[in-house]
Computed example of a mutant assay.
Amino acid sequence: MGTTRVSAAAVVGALVVQLAAPSTWHSASLAVFASGVAVGIPHGAVDHLVPAWFRIGTTAVGRVAVLSGYVAAAAGAFLFALWAPSAALALFLAASVMHFGRGETAVSALRRPSHAPPRQVDRICVVAYGAVTTLLPLARWPRVVRPFVQQLAPGAERLLTPTTCLTTMALTGGVVVLAGVALARTARFLDIAELALLTALFALLPPLAAFGIYFGAWHSPRHIGRLVCTDPANHALLAAGRLPAVLWRFTRQAAAPTAAGFLALTALLYASQTHRDAFVPVGIAFLAALTAPHLVVVALLDRHAAAPVDAFPIRPEHGDL
């Protein structure tokens, strides 16, 4: 079963649980969120290798420059999130809309590389996916997210007024409908179904649980699928149907960075035992530190996606991601 079908099945399962036992996700929200973030850490663990796939930083000096830039971006994001939390929150949300939205449209393009949608359709879908996964949970669940926003960026919780939330939900609903119509005109019915699933997930489940499920079971596996298809060293293996070898190669590549991420997260959790008031802002700053350079790398991946797309072994005869 392909990655996209597994992720869709996970969301369907979550929605079934919500309909059958609504209190389940409320009581398990924090655990699901933490689990989803932990499971999703490996999806950014090979960021340092991506530039070389496009012949960027292939020399010793270039590799040092790429790594130094990655660390500098992470450190800068961490300090900025602590120094200017409100501005960092606004930038983080805007970047997340583009990142998650573009991630979904990129995977869709890989499924049908010879039938790319018109650029205007792609742009509408980026905004629709991004708004559903980033803005809808804030607007739909203001009472739940307000304490976290207040701790992260004091004063920013004033944006969660009833009027603002209703406006955000209305605009999100409008762009989802527009995206659905545009996708229907290009006969991308699977994309419509997936957009509907994500909209239901973030509308019906508490925000922490919804994001944990989305990040760990949907976004991260699909991004890993995209990465293994992009790595030039995997093209021959995938064409030969040697998926276990491809996944084992990715596991080896991601092992050390993933371990480092878990160690840093463990240290943060340990420190929070004695400094509980600082846990939320420092924790979000830590996520920002991981996210900022990752966004840069994914933007590079997006920019160069057109170059190797014809070499991707993503065809109906080879199955899906």
Rank of each mutant, 00 (worst) to 15 (best):
250 F>K: 07
147 P>H: 13
221 P>A: 07
183 L>I: 10
194 E>A: 06
217 A>Q: 02
234 N>I: 06
193 A>H: 04
246 V>G: 07
180 G>A: 12
151 Q>C: 12
208 L>K: 00
247 L>M: 14
172 T>K: 01
193 A>C: 10
203 A>K: 02
233 A>Y: 06
185 R>H: 12
180 G>K: 05
152 L>M: 15
255 A>L: 15
146 R>V: 12
168 T>Q: 09
253 Q>E: 15
153 A>S: 14
186 T>L: 01
151 Q>Y: 02
178 L>V: 13
226 R>W: 04
162 P>K: 07
216 G>H: 05
204 L>G: 05
172 T>A: 11
235 H>L: 08
258 T>D: 03
231 D>G: 03
144 V>L: 13
188 R>C: 05
155 G>S: 06
170 A>N: 02
190 L>S: 12
207 P>F: 11
234 N>Q: 11
155 G>V: 05
229 C>K: 01
232 P>H: 05
240 A>W: 09
202 F>S: 01
176 V>G: 02
171 L>G: 04
144 V>P: 03
253 Q>C: 12
198 L>I: 10
164 T>K: 00
215 F>I: 12
205 L>A: 14
179 A>K: 00
184 A>T: 10
259 A>Q: 01
248 W>S: 14
220 S>L: 02
222 R>Y: 13
177 V>R: 11
213 I>F: 08
166 L>I: 04
208 L>G: 07
248 W>K: 13
181 V>S: 04
163 T>G: 11
242 R>C: 10
256 A>I: 15
164 T>I: 09
231 D>I: 03
186 T>F: 04
240 A>L: 08
149 V>Q: 00
154 P>H: 12
210 A>V: 11
219 H>F: 14
177 V>F: 14
183 L>K: 06
151 Q>T: 11
170 A>H: 05
245 A>N: 01
215 F>S: 03
242 R>E: 15
259 A>H: 06
229 C>D: 09
192 I>V: 15
246 V>L: 08
159 L>P: 04
165 C>I: 04
229 C>S: 12
152 L>P: 04
248 W>D: 10
188 R>G: 05
163 T>A: 15
233 A>S: 14
175 V>G: 00
197 L>Q: 05
241 G>I: 07
146 R>M: 12
226 R>H: 13
250 F>E: 08
236 A>V: 13
154 P>F: 10
226 R>G: 13
